[in-house]
Write a protein that binds this DNA or RNA. Structure first.
Lengths: 331, 331
DNA sequence: ACGGCCACTGTATGCGTATGCACGACCAGG
DNA sequence: CCTGGTCGTGCATACGCATACAGTGGCCGT
């Protein structure tokens, strides 16, 4: 391995001067910088991140805390976030939040991560508290747990859901069912509230038997839709917690021979690429997940550089995209 | 941060003794180990991975080199691999192979990764050579570049493709088209060869105009199928490089109003979860991607521990899964 | 001409852990 | 009683980089 010492020897300076020169310290003369840079490129020197991390007390690695790596949704979070972090000179390491929060917090410290993005926070998680107590910078992504304030990047479902429901109700649906997300997630809770509030404006209430709750995964949508649609008097429309859930529901409908949107309308939330497939054509609520992921990366890096900056709460707007899974109920 | 020195003070021993005791060095007496362990848990001490990495010259972080993080396929690689690595006490960091190979190799050294998994090698990539020259342990996953020998985990398409083609040909297809993968990937090349060889046994040759080549992504399948199916005399079956490509093809068919399998049969390779959706029901060639991903993780860790171990080449068998996208051509 | 300041560079040290080596204690054998 | 060995522990140091601090030399002002 080529070290700064090797570069120093070649450039005829001391090791600290190499360190300073390459980091563009103004206290080093231009001439020296030039020589050092030449020596560095001649040797193919690259600073050792481990050494630097040990020295400065923190690394350039940020963790992304996620529970369900197989979930399609996160692929579209990881990719842009990773790209943005790379652009900023940081690395992405994946962390799955296995049951206990303590391991995650310890993990962060022990491995010298400079900060973490929490993408699957539950409102009752102790992880944010732990991180705050240990002084680990973090940002909420998508979901939050506002008891512990921090930078956050979230979505405002209002506009999109309002327009979605305008379409659904406008088409004539009155018996509306829903497969909501977990109550202990801010996104699940918030979307449910908005749906109920807007429907209330139309004088529509969700029947208890038409409502399901479950995780944000395919299975929840699949099982939920089976339960909702298999009876003798199913709702004419099913609102889903997100697109992945909606995909589960669409497939359940297909299995049951229930036509979409002929027999039942289905709507999602997220507008994943899959949702625009010709085989799917899911009517859903869209927002800029890509931009959000990048912003989360930037916010975290900013936070790491300046731990006392005022927390920013970025909120992304939503819009309804009418495709082919919402239509008028059968007469 | 709590260091081994703090533990040493509390336990009344020296710092090196703490280091040895916690790593279960036989040269430390049981009594001392006991005291050290107690002190460590009392303080909530966790060894600092950075310090250790600097000291031993390598870390416990392994890189996964991938080009297309959005690709569904890799979600099903990353999840199990990550889990297995975690089990083995390692971390996963994502690396995207941006154009040049040099950056990746340097990156690995600079960030002290203990090894990498190459999941998107091309046969003409210089990365394997670079890694070998720099002594960085690595394993090939899925694809290989055999010019540079190393551990590898791959798939043997033979059995699955043979059975698939038996079905396709048995159903009566003679005009068969294909959207193959890139020629500079071992998987693309190998699958194409097997397909051609087996078809040859049936006395069938692929017409030049019925063959497309492209990356292993949705778009390639989508555009390829548009090209193949939009003419006045399309093939009656389209073999796809993998499931993601097949999904692109299925959607293109849907857009064109071409019925599957009524007007055209479509087959894939991989058997991703999506392929078994009721909306998709893709006939495809399956293998145990989950087990492969885990094995790659284990092999890499083994290689890191013993750089001179004999390279192992794990090859996974395939089997054909007939679902609903392959049927007899229209009379 | 000399004090003082600025610009630059080198020296020394620290970050947390691992490890070669030396040392002391203790025991057995001669 | 001394020698030689073993066992357990501490000491010193290394890993690669960053940084506080201590110089060194030159230049300017008086």
């Amino acid at each position: 391995m080529i070290t700064s010492r090797d570069v120093a020897r070649l450039a005829g300076v001391s090791q600290p001067t190499v360190s300073r020169a390459l980091r563009d310290d103004p206290k080093v003369s231009e001439a020296t910088k030039q020589r050092v840079r030449e020596a560095a490129t001649a040797l193919g020197y690259a600073p050792n991140a481990i050494g630097r991390a040990l020295s400065v007390g923190r690394s350039t690695r940020v963790g992304l805390v996620v529970t369900d790596l197989e979930n399609q949704f996160y692929a579209h979070v990881i990719a842009p976030m990773h790209q943005e972090l790379e652009r900023l000179g940081h690395e992405l390491v994946l962390i799955t939040e296995s049951s206990e929060a303590a391991p995650v917090a310890e993990h962060v410290l022990a491995h010298g991560l400079c900060g973490v993005v929490l993408a699957t926070t539950t409102v009752d998680s102790v992880l944010p508290t732990r991180l705050r107590d240990r002084g680990v910078p973090f940002v909420y992504f998508n979901r939050t747990a506002l008891a512990v304030p921090a930078d956050s990047v979230t979505v405002d479902p209002e506009r999109g859901v309002r327009d979605l429901l305008a379409d659904v109700v406008g088409q004539g649906h009155r018996r509306i069912g829903a497969i909501f997300g977990p109550r202990n997630t801010s996104t699940g809770e918030q979307r449910e509230q908005v749906v109920r509030a807007v429907l209330d404006e139309y004088g529509i209430a969700l029947a208890h038997r038409d409502v399901r709750h479950g995780p944000f995964d395919f299975r929840a949508g699949h099982e939920g839709a089976h339960a909702l649609l298999d009876g003798d008097d199913p709702p004419t429309a099913v609102l889903c917690a997100n697109d992945v859930v909606a995909l589960g529901a669409l497939n359940a409908a297909a299995e049951l021979g229930v036509a979409v949107p002929g027999d039942v309308s289905v709507a999602g939330f997220d507008d994943l690429p899959t949702s625009s497939w010709a085989l799917v054509r899911l009517s859903t609520v869209a927002y800029d997940l890509d931009a959000m992921s990048r912003e989360a990366a930037r916010l975290l890096v900013r936070r790491v550089d300046d731990p006392h900056a005022e927390p920013v709460r970025a909120v992304y707007p939503t819009r309804y995209i009418a495709r082919a899974t919402v239509a008028a109920p059968r007469a």
